[in-house]
Simulated scan of single mutants.
Amino acid sequence: MPNFFNTLDRPDVSLVGAASTTDLITTKVDGDTDPQLVINANGRIEFGGGAGAVDVALFRNGSAQLQTINDFVSEGNLICDVAGKGLRIKEGANARMGVATLVAGTVTVSNTSVTANTRIILSRSTTGGTTGDLSYTVSAGTSFTINSSSGTDTSTVVWLLTEPA
């Protein structure tokens, strides 16, 4: 049997779980009732505060992507350092990005994710009618309205919702 401490240049330790959800490694601080770190056999890494169930997870979602089911906070920059890669945001009901078409210079977008602090970035993607300056108003938890200073503006507008940190 090799001495592990003399073979650190090659891994001689392997943990095998009976099922993908088997906990291979669990750590907790003395006195904690629950784990602060769990590594499952499928590679899922779960984190908790030690006084309740784990509440954050980081895992492979099946197609060369790392996923979390919770918020991801960075104390540094988010860097996309490969040309052609960047930020991708899902569109749809109550999404944070989308497209709307002005009718007589206005359109209301139903969206329950907007808050009183939501900042909306607007850009005209297709010009229609007589264009005007774009602005918006928010009804927190309900919708936002995109307005043009021209009552005959029928442009298509793309929008992005952001929140201050």
Rank of each mutant, 00 (worst) to 15 (best):
P2S: 13
N3G: 08
N3E: 14
N6M: 02
T7G: 06
T7L: 07
L8K: 09
R10S: 15
R10W: 04
P11I: 02
P11C: 12
P11S: 15
S14E: 13
S14C: 09
G17I: 01
A18P: 05
T22D: 14
T22R: 04
T22C: 00
D23N: 15
L24D: 11
L24T: 08
L24I: 02
T27D: 10
K28M: 09
K28A: 06
G31A: 03
G31Y: 04
D34I: 02
D34S: 11
P35Y: 08
P35T: 09
P35H: 04
Q36K: 15
L37S: 07
I39K: 03
N40M: 12
A41I: 03
N42W: 06
N42E: 05
G43T: 03
R44V: 11
E46K: 12
E46S: 15
F47A: 15
F47W: 06
G48T: 04
G49H: 12
G50Q: 08
A51T: 13
A53M: 02
A57Q: 11
A57D: 14
F59V: 02
R60N: 15
N61K: 09
A64E: 12
I69E: 15
F72E: 07
S74N: 06
S74P: 01
E75L: 07
G76I: 00
I79K: 12
C80W: 06
D81Y: 01
V82Q: 10
G84Y: 08
L87C: 04
I89Q: 00
G92F: 03
N94H: 12
R96Y: 00
M97L: 10
M97T: 00
T101R: 06
L102N: 05
V103I: 10
V103H: 01
V103T: 15
A104M: 10
G105W: 05
V107A: 12
V107Y: 03
T108P: 10
V109Q: 07
T112H: 05
T112Q: 14
T112Y: 01
T115H: 03
A116M: 03
A116V: 09
S123C: 11
R124L: 04
S125E: 14
T127R: 11
G129Y: 02
T131P: 02
L134A: 04
S135N: 11
S135Q: 08
Y136M: 01
A140C: 02
G141Q: 12
G141C: 11
T142M: 11
S143D: 13
T145C: 05
S148N: 07
S148R: 06
S149G: 04
S149Y: 10
S150P: 04
T152V: 13
V157Q: 07
W159A: 00
L161R: 00
P164C: 05
A165N: 15
